[in-house]
């Protein structure tokens, strides 16, 4: 992975790295990706992707509204202004 690709990724995931962190992570990144590349040795043409390790049967909710009882406790985690949650500028 080259520098520009690495920088592009950081931008996509909104991560800023200090110089030290950048060096440490970038060095390992290439070793790890090389290790990941070993998966291509296996032919998986006829194999289906296992999204879960076990088959997960359908579980579905009927359309019945139910109020969450602790909205004030939930909103305590945020900064609010007249019922609204305050967010950054857009």
């Amino acid at each position: 992975m080259d520098d520009s690709e690495f920088s592009r990724l950081l931008k996509i995931c909104r991560i800023h790295l200090s110089e030290d962190e950048r060096l440490a992570i970038k060095k390992d990144t290439n070793d790890i990706l090389e290790y990941f590349n070993s998966l291509s040795e296996v032919s998986t043409k006829e194999v289906h992707e296992a999204y879960h390790p076990i088959s997960v049967p359908e579980k579905i909710r009927s359309d019945v509204p139910l109020d969450f009882p602790d909205v004030p406790l939930l909103l305590k985690n945020t900064k609010t202004y007249r019922f609204y949650v305050v967010g950054p500028d857009i």
């Binding site: 909104r14 985690n77 945020t78 900064k79 949650v85 305050v86 967010g87 950054p88 500028d89 857009i90």
Partner: peptide
């Protein structure tokens, strides 16, 4: 901004804020 660690400067653009 929704929970946990808070960035207090809401006036910065969301990309910088995040």
């Amino acid at each position: 901004f929704k929970y946990g660690f808070k960035n207090e400067d809401f006036t910065s653009n969301y990309n910088k804020f995040f």
